[in-house]
Design a protein around this nucleic acid. Structure first.
Lengths: 193, 193
DNA sequence: CGCCCCATGTAAGACGTTACATGATTGA
DNA sequence: TCAATCATGTAACGTCTTACATGGGGCG
């Protein structure tokens, strides 16, 4: 029975796709590289790895090289690659925008090595398409609740909208950059392999 | 024994300070008003209310008006007001910026009715002060990891930085707006009471 | 009467946090 | 030898999710 994957699970899949690693490596990754949204604690990562292993999405091989201390290196299984790709290429919905911007950005960050630049661009366009009505919604909501909110509440709301608009602008820039790069380089549209 | 309050708990305190409400009202608030970051589910809210009640931060009174069906209206105790104010006026730290921008915005949104406009302004300045070095950090990190990241990863990172810069700009705007408003209106610096 | 909304709750399970435990290796 | 780091894990606890349960009230 395949259960749904949690957020940390996808982050792990993405990192492992970029480079097979041990649990410790992954922890360091979270600690240093400002993916600090995710936990660096062993109590989160090791159980998460075991869950992914249970779902057959990753497989661990005990490293027998140089050092004697055991070290399990995990890598994606074909099933894991598939799950990661489906997560990344999933179209962006309105609900995701509400609380999950970080997650969407993570999907995009992993997208190029996992699904190739063309699918990356699709994701950006999907994000852009979801962003437009979402911003309209926010504006309407602000209008509606303007009177009942204190000044600081209204300002905070406006700040949220501005942040979303900023994201939209970034999306536009990223799309043009990506299109340019794709024209410049070869038209390799297939992911790694 | 007073335990630390969770994020949802503060959201509830803030809403209850604005207006005493029942659990159901609070749920509707989360459902409609795009504080959808927080859960609308009874399985989250009712236990949360009980925890706050256990900590003596809120008190519920059964409404005896019109309708016969029971409805418990919660309101803050003095201890609850204090906890809310301490949360809001807490200076913004670097760690909070990493994963907790929404929470900071929530603090600010609640700030004016809870601690008054002067403390609101303090919070904005604290945010601004924390934002500056944080952005520098992000830029340095981008430089450092530029080479090892795929294009989409770099773009996503840049997007994150842009969002943070946008927040900084908003902070500046909000500060000037607030200062203007304070000059215009009366200098009432005391919160509600 | 049947159905939907109000309003409150509970129970099982998933996930994360904190803190501790375990050993082996490296370096002072 | 003693401490720090590598590398993995466990246990207790708190919180959130999902789904179900419960009853009264209004309405067609």
């Amino acid at each position: 029975v395949s259960t749904a994957i949690f957020s940390l699970g996808y982050a792990l899949l993405g990192l492992l796709q970029q480079k097979p690693s041990s649990g410790y490596d992954l922890r360091k990754n979270f600690l240093s590289t400002s993916m600090k949204t995710y936990s660096d604690s062993p109590g989160a990562i090791y159980p998460a790895l075991r869950r992914l292993q249970r779902e057959q999405l990753i497989r661990g091989t005990i490293e027998e090289t140089s050092a004697l201390r055991r070290r399990q290196i995990f890598h994606l299984t074909p099933k894991g690659v598939d799950a990661l790709q489906r997560w990344i290429t999933r179209p962006v919905t309105r609900e995701e925008l509400v609380g999950g911007k970080d997650q969407i950005m993570l999907r995009f960050a992993f997208s190029e090595p996992a699904v190739g630049p063309i699918a990356s661009l699709e994701l950006l366009k999907s994000l852009q398409a979801a962003l437009l009505p979402h911003i309209q919604n926010l504006r309407k909501e602000l209008q509606a609740s303007q009177s009942t909110m204190p000044t600081s509440g209204r300002l905070a709301f406006e700040g949220g909208i501005r942040g979303t608009e900023c994201l939209l602008q970034w999306t536009q820039d990223a799309i043009t950059k990506y299109a340019k790069e794709r024209k410049r380089g070869s038209l390799c549209n297939s992911p790694t392999h």
